[in-house]
Amino acid sequence: MARLNVNGKAVEVDAEPDTPLLWVIREQLGLTGTKYGCGVAQCGACTVHIDGAPVRTCIRPLSSVKPEQKIVTIEGLSPNANHPVQAAWLELDVPQCGYCQSGQMMAAAALLKNTPKPTDAQIVSAMSNICRCGTYNRIKAAIKLAAKKSA
């Protein structure tokens, strides 16, 4: 049994040490807001925070995460989906199909934590997540809106 801290709760999971954190989160913990898109850290749909940093969990083995490290998934980003990023995403109606958007919002929230007023170049650099519906311009606008509202 491995011990983890997920969304502020200590949990025990039964999974092999090489199991990607993504599948531990989705299958052992039942938190399905974190998505499988590629399994090779290309698309970013599986992004969560570990100690505040954005991590692509589809290639992150369970054994590499320590029990005291704080894992936050989209379900734990805010109590009522009211994180400035979530609020901005809703206000600008960003998602189309929405499948990639948990990962997009987690990446955006991590960006804004360290860079409260990101430039366009900083946004592009931090937001390498893939969206096949093509919501990129809305995502950029929502990040700027969230930055403005958090100021």
Binding site: T32, G33, K35, Y36, L77, W89, L90, D93, G98
Partner: peptide, 21 residues
């Protein structure tokens, strides 16, 4: 009008068939 389907997409609550239990 705002989309009717977007709220559950904000916090991972939207269940795609990938998420069916």
């Amino acid at each position: 009008q705002k989309r009717l389907d977007n709220k559950p997409k904000m916090n991972g609550a939207q269940i795609y068939s990938m998420d069916v239990k």
